[in-house]
Design a protein around this nucleic acid. Structure first.
Length: 577
DNA sequence: GCCGTTTTCGGCCCGACTGTTTTCAGTCG
């Protein structure tokens, strides 16, 4: 059984235990185990080497269960547990306000096993009569059932951005707001965002709260208190606002930026120094009155790290994957920035399925101060996208050379192709035509359901092809829409390293592929990335922002990415590859 | 279930908000 499935099972065990009213710490142990497994960079080695227990959060019991699942695909404990609860009860956990205990209470009192039965029980006014419940609880459950799907949806970071930034700007415009920011997974630049966490510093929280809950875009206010309010926005997103005094702002911002793993480690570090860290600040642990010089108010988040003897950790790295150790040793990477980009590859034109001409893309690149654009239309197997055959490709190459010679644009156009990588691992176009190009991106657009072995072999064959420069959108995932195809990423990274090939960082907000979780290891092995907008429109150059998120979350510096290099250096690179 | 210069038991991050209660349990992040 593969790792992803094992992670799912561990999480599901946690959920079922929650429903059964098990020890909350045991539940957390399973959740922690699932997260540890997700963060692990050498999973297969650790399973075969029996060294899973070296990972914090994985003890004897979990390690044994993981190995059993990995080798046999089956786990008696899990099967029995699963049979012991009705699946409808698990679904009820998705209703806001219902946790394990309340579901158990409802089920004990009314014997409802599905959401439909629960809905009916609410309509018959039975839930309100259960001890510990009331009219309000019942109404909330009813509303939760009706809105379940919409509320549980995650959102692309890119979509969340368009909701979050106007609200943030509005907060900052309020005269009573001293500081404001968005925390949470949005600030950590995760590829998808569940809800938005706004933090504001103000001496008069009530006015700020009032403004927040009465914004034009609010559909419903789900909680409103002195320091915290929650709302549902018309688009379905949930947003929270916390208003704190100025002195607490950076502590609160750090706390709600997370991640959970990062916070736990920060707290442990604080405790080992005689300090207790919370969203409100540091306090001295009992009995330890060593003279700590704690500033009254932090001037910035960096001071919080300073007090713990750490370099400032950028939000993107706060995933509990070794950032604290690196910050302690002063070995945090100097992360790539959007301004480091000097051009882009992977751009489509009107020749296949883009909407702009080569000239339009060059003009847009000039506006951004870039030095080059790599033109890559589809190849003929991508029939639906009007892919180019050899003759059309050669004509385009000639056209591109001519545009460069005419010198109307500061930016240089590189002639390339996004060549279909056929099911058997061969390229879609003849070598003679391909040889005329500056560079080649090989991408999979068909036969997504091949086995992991076939698919891995297919990609590795492309990586071993002397004309291929880079591999496009490696996993083929479409966030929130389509799962990645089966691939052994570790083997592919090794093959890319061995053959000096680039792996694309596809910056399209729906792709963000290869996943940031693989990049730190890949760059350590010497694999170069390239932040590619996969532009079908000059406007799509904006996608580089999300591409940079992937690179930063993957611990990459400017030197790990091809398109931070100057035009001359890229020419040299292509000539030698 | 995990973990240990308070180490094999007894802790486990911690505070806000809601709805139900007359002082608190459950949920959430």
């Amino acid at each position: 059984m593969n790792r992803k499935k094992i992670i799912q099972i561990l999480s599901e065990i946690a959920t079922i235990l929650e429903l059964k009213g098990e020890n909350p710490f045991k539940i957390r142990a399973y959740q922690n185990g699932a997260r540890a497994l997700e963060a692990m960079e050498d999973f297969e080695d650790r399973v075969s080497g029996q060294t899973l227990t070296e990972i914090p959060g994985l003890g004897e019991a979990l390690s044994e269960k993981i190995i059993t699942l990995y080798t046999t695909g089956h786990l008696e404990f899990y099967s029995k547990l699963r049979k012991s609860v009705k699946p409808g009860l698990l679904e009820m956990l998705e209703i806001p306000g219902l946790g394990g205990k309340k579901i158990k209470a409802i089920n004990d009192a009314l014997k409802v096993g599905t959401i439909e039965e629960l809905l009916q029980a609410c309509q018959e006014n039975k839930v309100a009569e259960i001890k510990g419940f009331g009219q309000k609880s019942q109404d909330n459950i009813l509303a939760g059932i009706h809105n379940r799907e919409r509320y549980n949806a995650r959102h692309l970071w890119w979509s969340a951005r368009h909701v979050a930034l106007p609200i943030l700007a509005g907060l900052r415009d309020l005269p009573e707001v001293e500081l404001a920011d968005v925390a949470g997974s949005f600030r950590r630049r995760m590829e998808t965002v569940g809800d938005l966490d706004f933090i504001a510093a103000s001496p008069s929280p009530e006015n700020v709260m009032k403004w927040f809950v009465s914004m034009e875009s609010v559909r419903e206010v789900t909680a409103q208190g002195a320091t915290k309010s929650s709302i549902r926005l018309k688009g379905g997103m949930q947003a929270d606002l916390r208003v704190v005094p100025r002195e607490q702002f950076y502590y609160t911002l750090h706390h709600f930026t997370g991640s959970k793993d990062h916070n736990v480690q920060m707290r442990q570090r604080a405790l080992s120094r005689g300090l207790s860290l919370s969203e409100w600040g540091f306090s001295l642990v009992d009995g330890n009155l060593a003279s700590k010089a704690l500033p009254e108010t932090l001037a910035g988040e960096n001071q919080l790290f300073e007090i713990l003897g750490l370099d400032q950790i950028p939000p993107e790295l706060r995933e509990g994957r070794g950032e604290i150790e690196a910050a302690e040793q002063g070995t945090l990477p100097d992360l790539i920035k959007q301004e480091d980009l000097k051009g882009v590859f992977h751009c489509h034109t009107v020749a296949s399925d883009g909407v702009d001409r080569v000239e339009d893309l060059l003009a847009a690149a000039d506006e951004r101060g870039w030095e080059y654009v790599g033109i890559t239309d589809h190849s003929k197997a991508s029939f639906q996208a009007n892919g180019l055959d050899e003759a059309r490709l050669l004509a385009q190459v000639e056209q591109i050379r001519k545009i460069n010679d005419e010198g109307n644009y500061r930016s240089h156009a590189f002639a390339g192709i996004e060549c279909d990588l056929l099911p058997d691992g061969t390229l879609d176009l003849g070598e003679e035509a391909l040889s005329a190009l500056d560079f080649i991106i090989a991408s999979i657009h068909s036969s997504f359901s091949q086995t992991e072995e076939e698919m891995t072999k297919r990609v590795i064959r492309a990586l071993e092809h002397p004309l291929v420069t880079m591999i496009g959108h490696l996993s083929g995932r479409l966030l929130l829409r389509r799962e990645p195809y089966a691939l052994n990423i570790e083997k592919i990274v090794d093959a890319a390293a061995a053959n000096g090939k680039i792996i694309e960082i596809n910056a399209n907000p729906m792709r963000m592929d290869m996943d940031w979780r693989h990049w730190r290891k890949a760059s350590e092995k010497g694999v170069l990335g390239s932040v590619n907008p996969d532009a079908h429109d000059a406007q799509h150059f904006d996608f580089c922002e999300t591409g940079i998120h992937v690179a930063r979350k993957g611990w990459l510096t400017a030197k790990d990415v091809l398109n931070t290099r100057s035009l001359e250096d890229v020419k040299t690179f292509f000539a030698s590859h």
